[in-house]
Structures are given as structure tokens and as C-alpha cells.
Nucleic acid binder design. Structure first.
Lengths: 268, 268
DNA sequence: GCACGTATGTTTGTCGACAATCAGATCGTC
DNA sequence: GACGATCTGATTGTCGACAAACATACGTGC
């Protein structure tokens, strides 16, 4: 269980209550209670399913079956699906229903092009106006977890930590939009892995690159940081696109059998 | 009528049919027919309403009334609304319904931070791997239209052309993700104008900045292009945030009375 | 006069049902 | 035997309806 979905939910929560009046400025004594809607819950669950591979890349989804598994009606399910369509994780074709997107080679390059845009800007903004020391602390924690997972040869945990690392890097810039865009791009990154790199190879040199990022943030070396980011992205594209044979693009290898959990709705 | 919604629809259309098999490679003899769904149409119409200011920033929306205006039921309308929620243009609060987002000062800075990320990367990618000459042609066309509008003192047309210019700039990079992110950011830019700059000031120096961008693209001057972009963004943030008094943030000034048009649905 | 509790109207959230449409299977014809 | 037409089953798109919850207005007690 990764924390990514948590991040997502936070990012999609309305950023402030519907009235903008700020009546007395009570210095934020109490933060508003979250109160997620059902559509939020369904969306998070579907996103988690795509992220974990339970909903395999390219597989068509039946609305009735999904709604039944989640214990809701088709209405809210369809609304949640539209969110994911907008996010680019699902496609919907008229009279043909929903399907998880499949990533082709062009998409890999495009995802990493967008990630480069977001991560570079986030890093610049972090160094110039943020709190690098705090960021270093958070990043180091994820990095250690990643190193441990790598030592265990736990490919899936390494992948989770990798994604968590980059999300934390962008979150450190405290930009709601960059964070939100990043969370989508990271799920798409995961989809690239599912669609293309069916072996889940653990690269021994991957954690080192992250160490360089942390070090560059610590000393405030902006050019160095940006060039590490660039190299990191280029390496990832190389690794994902180069070794794959042409024919075996959409191999649904990592489909784990575990079904989707039911929603924890208030007892009806 | 701006062409932006057109761009939008294209960006949100599934990028390829649901089957990825490419049976015989017939060299794209026929492009697939668009066939937009009703949800697509409603989404585009709502987006257009937000973009034009018909749906004022911060105003709450009643589902029944909106559905009635558009001539559809509440179901498809709610699905379309969820797309815009995911896009960040609408908010939904439990049991309190939909509302158009309002942009505060922090949001202005954030929108332009994200725009800087996208536009810089798009420009780099255009110069390195794209077709700058073709881009110059398209950009010049929009630029001329903008100059004419500026000479007429037509503030709204200038704003439309401005947004079209930046969308064309990013589209020239041929990155589906950057284009899609950009289209959302541009509507948010428009919302910033509605929320903060109620005077719709036409800046005489704005077209010049665009001329510099075109020139930099033409000669392939990457550092110069990036610095023009940076300056352009910084100027915009300055212009939008500086002259506004603190208290008058959410003034719904530009609400034009024109109601939402009905959808052009096939006769039932 | 102010605060609290109560009642009511409106809106949202959710569900079930129906019709239109498409994919696959079956059958017939050349 | 292969190709085409037809049929059928299943699924999607859309709508209307119902119940729950909130906001507003009203009334009562102190």
C-alpha cells in the first residue's frame, strides 16, 4: 500500500470552502473536516487499482461489474470514471465503454517530457523560495526506504518508493498545480512500466541518482540539480523504450489477481 | 467566439482507438470520425461558459437549472461537471453543490509558475526536435490578429488572441500532455483576469513581447527565448497582482448577461 | 432583544428502469 | 468453404424518482 493515493485525495480536495469571505480571521483555530464525497472515494479506489495493476493497462472495464464490486450504483461510478478520463488514465469510446489507457513508446517520451518540465520548475522554485532543509529531510526518509527495498530485491517496493520520492520532491515546492499534475504523471509512469517493462527490473544504480538529487538540494546547487534531473529522465526513457522488442508492447503481464475492494461506505 | 474550445475538444479526445493492434498499417488512409459523446459536448459548453465569463467566477451553480438550460438531464451534466472538477475549474462541496473556482493572489502566482514550466519545456522541445518554421507561421498569424485587435482597443479580442498564441506555442511542440495541461492553465489564466483584473486593461506593450517570442523561435535562440518567456510570465503576475486593492478580490464584475446556449443534440 | 430550537422548502446524492446501440454468434446463400 | 445478412444478448446512455441533508425562515423562551 503506497501513500500516493492519499496525496491524490488531498490534491483533489477543494482548496478552500465555497465562501471566500473570511469573516473574522480567527487564525485558523480549527481546520475544516475533510468529508470526502463518494465520488472521491470511488475515484481514489479506481486510481489505486490502476496504480497497483489490478486494473490492467488496456483492459476494458464493464460499468455494471465495477459498480457491483465497489458496492455502489452505476451513477457515481460513471462520475468517478469521468474524472479519470479527464486525468488521462481512462478512455471512453462511445457505446464501447471504459478502458484503462495503454502507453505506447511515444507516450513514454511524452510523460517524461512533461515530468521534466514539472520537476525542473519545482526544483528551481524550491531552491529559490522554499525550505530546502525540510525537503532534504523528507526526501532522505523516502530514499532510505528505497535503499532498503532495493537491498531486499523487492522490485515493487522500489517502484513505489521511487514514485513517492519524486512526488515528495515536487510537493516540497508547495505548488498545488505542479503537485497535482505530478501525481497524474506518476501514475502514468507506473502505467508505462506495466505496458512496456514487464520484467520489473530493479536497477542497482537508480538509488544513487536520487542521492545526487538530495545532495544537490542540500547544497543549493541549482544547475547541478537541474542536470541531474535531466539525466534521470533521459535514463528512464532509455531504460523503458530501448530493450523492448517491437511486437510485445501491450503485454498485460503484471495483472495481479487480487480484486478491487469494496468501498467503506457508511452502513446503509 | 474563440477557437480555444475547439483545441480543447481535440485535446480530450482519446488519442487512439481502443484497440492498439494496427492491423495492416494502411498508412492512415482514413482518419477516425470524431463522434463526440454528450458528456464531451456538455463539458465543452461549460468550459466555454467559464472561459467567456458567462458562468462567473465564484458563482454557485444549480444542477437542475444548468441541466435545463442545456437541455439534458442531470446525469450527463453531473458527469461533465466531474471532469471540470478534476480539471480544477469547478469545485464541489458535499451537499452544497458546484461552484466556479475563484482565483486568489496565490493562485495567480501558481498558475504562472506552472505555465512557465510548460511553456519553457515546450519551447525547448520545439527548437530541438520540432519544426520552428511552421510554428513561426502559425504564431505570426495569431500575432497579427492580436495586433489588429489591440489597435481596435478590443480588450476581449486581445485576451482571446493572447491565449490562442500561447496555446499555439505549446501545441507546436507536439506533446499531447503539455498541450492538455496548457489548455487548462489558460482557462485558469482567464479566470485570474475575471477574479482580479476587472478592468480588462489592454497593455500596449503586450504584443511586442509576443513579437520577441516569434523572433527568438525564428532564429533558434534558445536562451533568448527562455528568458523572454520568463519575463513575460513575471510581467503578467506583476500586472495581475500588484495594482489590485487587498479587499476587492472576488468582485464578479465581468458577468455578461448572455445565458448558456442549449446543446445541439440530435433531434429526439 | 437575543439566542436557541423547530419547521419547511429546496437541492443534492443515489438508485432503478428503459431504450438505443453494438459485438458476437447463427444461419443462409453463392 | 467463404462471405454476407440477420438475430440476439449484453452493455451503454439517459432519464425520472425518491430519500436524505442542508439552509433559511419562523417561533418560543429567557
Amino acid at each position: 500500500m503506497t501513500d500516493l493515493t492519499e496525496v491524490h485525495i488531498v490534491a483533489n480536495t477543494p482548496r478552500r470552502p465555497i465562501r471566500t469571505v473570511t469573516p473574522l480571521k480567527p487564525a485558523r483555530a480549527l481546520t475544516p473536516v475533510p468529508r470526502e464525497s463518494t465520488v472521491d472515494l470511488i475515484t481514489a479506489r479506481l486510481r489505486q487499482g490502476i496504480f497497483e495493476g489490478t486494473l490492467a493497462a488496456g483492459s476494458p472495464l464493464g460499468e455494471a461489474e465495477l459498480a457491483d464490486q465497489l458496492g455502489v450504483s452505476r451513477g457515481p461510478l460513471r462520475e468517478a470514471a469521468q474524472r479519470l478520463v479527464q486525468e488521462g488514465l481512462l478512455t471512453t469510446t462511445r457505446r464501447r465503454g471504459l478502458a484503462v489507457v495503454t502507453m505506447a513508446r511515444d507516450d513514454v517520451a511524452d510523460v517524461y517530457l512533461a515530468r521534466r518540465a514539472v520537476e525542473r520548475t519545482a526544483c528551481q522554485h524550491l531552491l529559490r523560495t522554499g525550505d530546502p532543509a525540510r525537503a532534504v529531510k523528507a526526501l532522505t526518509r523516502v530514499h532510505q526506504r528505497m535503499t532498503r527495498a532495493s537491498r531486499r530485491r523487492d522490485a515493487h517496493a522500489v517502484g513505489d518508493a521511487d514514485i513517492e520520492f519524486h512526488q515528495a520532491l515536487v510537493d516540497a515546492a508547495h505548488s498545488p498545480r505542479l503537485s497535482r499534475i505530478m501525481s497524474t504523471l506518476l501514475i502514468e509512469t507506473r502505467l508505462c512500466t506495466y505496458s512496456l517493462d514487464r520484467m520489473f527490473r530493479v536497477r542497482a544504480d537508480m538509488p544513487d541518482s536520487h542521492g545526487e538529487i538530495i545532495e544537490a538540494v542540500r547544497v543549493g546547487d541549482e544547475p547541478g540539480l537541474l542536470s541531474v534531473i535531466d539525466r534521470h529522465m533521459a535514463d528512464a526513457v532509455e531504460r523503458l523504450t530501448a530493450p523492448t522488442e517491437v511486437g510485445t508492447i501491450a503485454d498485460p503481464a503484471p495483472a495481479r489477481p487480487r480484486p478491487l475492494d469494496r468501498l467503506d461506505l457508511p452502513a446503509d
